[in-house]
Simulated scan of single mutants.
Amino acid sequence: MNAMLTQSDEQRMLVDMVDGLLVAEDHAWSNFAEQGLLAMPFATGEGGLDSSAADLSLVMGALGRADVDVPFLASAIIGSRLVRNLASPAQRLHWAPKITAGTMVLALAHAEPGQHFDAAPVGTIAEPTASGFSLTGQKTMVLGGKHATHFLVSATGPSGLNVFLVPADAAGVTMSPHWLGDGAELTLTGAELSSSNLLDGPDAAAFLAAALDHGLAGLVAGAVGAMEQLHHLTIDYLKTRKQFGVAIGSFQALQHRAVDMLIELEQARSMRDHATAALDADPAIRRRAVLAAKAYVDGAARLLGETAVQLHGAIGMTLESPAGRLFRRLSTTQMQLCDRTQCLHELSLSPASLLEEDE
């Protein structure tokens, strides 16, 4: 299956390794650590691999194809990027080995009730105490929150926007997992933190925005991977399911539906690659690229998913069917970080067309 437009030998080896890992029934987080996947976002001086955004996208695509529920996006892409860019050198040296070993699992808690995809201004308050800070507020739609050992919580403090590392088992922290997916709701009621839990690098807002954009690109890559697998399963089903003594794939009307699925998939791949390539660009260009990709892929995923379910028939509606589970995964992804409506709204406010160069 096509994972990216072009791949180096090393990237093909990475995909083969991840695919092989995901074939096994045991998807333990420790296995991801042992294979070095959790070290990918960190610099080599911190025990990491300093992997590119394209490499991380390949991992997300493999996870999407395998429909595996692990917090790679939340911890290894969004959370690790925040720690790498916003934490002090001493904090990184202390936390990075735990993250890469899989014993510290991160989840960003930023969105808030009533704001969801645009948590600005941040209503969670960080009040100074004798030993550090006390956090009070509520966070919603915390991606990967069900698996987290530590939350990266955005809060408004005396100096403005800050990000804190909050242990999931700290007093005053209540996590309520969603019934579908790996998300959660988070309530902080006077959660006491040491001053060492404040990520004290400069410009928290800029690094938070960058981490969220990388998260959107990761979501897109995972969705495209799920779409690839769903398309593959549907084509196989059309070739093997028989009606009136012939394979239903011989019916021209169903062939046309399969072609429509392929067109959506190929366009989604292009948008994924465009977003991934833009992650190192100017923040405004990066933001438009990931928003456009998420908006397009959300729509394509819905069309491809609904078509796949229709072509599978009743079995496609069940969670016993891989097609049904992939359809559920794609439906959940459409509501994560930024839905299609919000993406299009934010794009409409952009001062420049996506097809024009910034001056």
Rank of each mutant, 00 (worst) to 15 (best):
A76V: 07
D358S: 13
A292E: 13
L161N: 10
G144K: 04
K98T: 08
R325A: 08
P283W: 01
S348L: 10
G47L: 03
L311S: 02
F151V: 04
Q255E: 08
A293M: 00
W29Y: 12
M141P: 01
C343K: 06
Q229H: 10
T332H: 14
P128L: 03
R269K: 13
P351K: 02
E266D: 15
A223G: 13
T44R: 15
G305M: 02
A170T: 01
L198K: 03
R286W: 07
N85C: 10
M40F: 02
K98Q: 13
L193C: 01
A191Y: 05
T129I: 00
L14G: 11
E46S: 10
G157E: 04
H116C: 00
M175I: 11
T276H: 08
S194L: 00
L238I: 04
E264N: 15
L238P: 08
S348K: 10
Q267Y: 13
S348W: 00
G225A: 12
I99H: 04
L49R: 14
A148C: 05
Q336P: 01
P283D: 06
F164T: 09
Q91G: 12
A352L: 13
V105Q: 11
V83K: 07
H27A: 08
F72C: 01
S159K: 13
D118G: 03
A209N: 15
E356D: 15
Q229L: 09
E10K: 13
M261N: 02
P121Q: 08
W179C: 06
L212F: 14
R272M: 15
G64S: 07
A76D: 04
V153W: 05
L344D: 08
L14E: 10
E46P: 03
L14W: 02
P128I: 00
A28N: 08
E192H: 04
H345E: 10
A111Y: 05
M60N: 10
F327P: 00
S159A: 13
G45Q: 07
T6E: 15
Y296H: 12
V142F: 00
E359G: 13
V220R: 06
T156W: 05
G20R: 03
E228F: 02
I77N: 10
T240Y: 00
A204W: 06
A205S: 09
Q252L: 12
G64W: 00
N31Q: 13
L354A: 12
V59F: 08
L262V: 02
H150W: 05
D213N: 08
L230H: 05
Q342Y: 11
R84Q: 15
E228G: 12
Q91L: 09
A171S: 13
D19Y: 11
A268C: 04
D26L: 00
A24K: 11
G305W: 04
S176R: 14
D67S: 11
H256P: 00
F42E: 02
L82E: 06
P89K: 11
K146C: 05
G190I: 03
A223N: 01
L37D: 03
L198F: 06
V290W: 02
L22T: 02
E306H: 09
P351I: 05
G225N: 05
Q310C: 01
R269L: 11
I263V: 14
M104N: 05
G145S: 07
L311I: 06
M40L: 08
P167R: 06
S176Y: 07
